[in-house]
Simulated scan of single mutants.
Amino acid sequence: MSKSTNIKWHDAAITKNERKVNNGHGSAVLWFTGLSGSGKSTLANAVSSSLFQKGIHEYVLDGDNIRHGLNKDLGFSDHDRTENIRRIGEVSKLFVDSGTIVTTAFISPFRSDRDQVRSLFSEGEFIEVFVDCPLEECERRDPKKLYEKARRGEIKDFTGIDSPYEAPEAPELTIQTDSLSIEEAVETILSYLKDHKII
């Protein structure tokens, strides 16, 4: 429930559809979700780079980067994780309204939080991409040495170790990064965007 009072929504002079027509492509959020080390950020940036090279308006929202600014006041409790995702959902909606294809890379471990974000968007604008990688492989990669620290008890509430990850039940796309190359994964996602007439 909003704590703000005496406020009124002001319609924009330029609509989302007008921006899409002007841009020559649709807008949507590619919501990459998966365990730490699954390849979310790598994939989100690779897709964004490919879109940029095609002259498509794009932007990447990365979990770690957002926690350096917008969400630097949040920790990793269940409540803070939920608020983290709520804020990113609202920011993503602004990007989509602007006519941009935004890629987000967040563990976003809880289905209810992802469903809440989905509810902000029109049909077809929220594309859940499950970056599916076995825990064992994520731990083997462990680019930030986070699993190692979690196993030693130095990090509490770490997703996949002592905090749950609820995998999507019906994502628009599932990308298995332990068997697909980055190039193959990017092509799969771009094909989806083409098939659904977003690009």
Rank of each mutant, 00 (worst) to 15 (best):
T5H: 10
T5A: 11
T5Q: 13
A13I: 13
N22S: 14
N23F: 13
A28C: 15
A28S: 14
V29A: 13
L30A: 08
L30W: 12
T33W: 00
S38R: 05
S38N: 07
T42C: 12
V47W: 11
S48M: 12
S49N: 14
Q53H: 13
V60M: 11
D62S: 08
D64W: 11
N65W: 01
N71W: 06
D73E: 14
L74I: 04
G75S: 12
D80P: 10
D80N: 12
I88T: 11
D97S: 10
S98I: 01
G99M: 05
F106C: 08
S108Y: 00
P109D: 09
S112A: 14
D113K: 08
D115C: 00
V117S: 02
R118E: 12
S122C: 02
E125Q: 13
F126E: 11
F130M: 04
V131K: 03
P134S: 11
L135R: 04
E139M: 15
R140Q: 12
R141E: 11
K144C: 02
K145F: 03
L146C: 09
E148S: 13
K149F: 02
R152C: 02
G153L: 10
E154Y: 05
D157M: 09
F158R: 05
T159C: 08
P171N: 02
T174L: 08
L180V: 02
L180G: 01
S181E: 07
S181R: 10
I189S: 09
L190D: 03
S191L: 13
K194C: 03
H196I: 10
I198N: 03
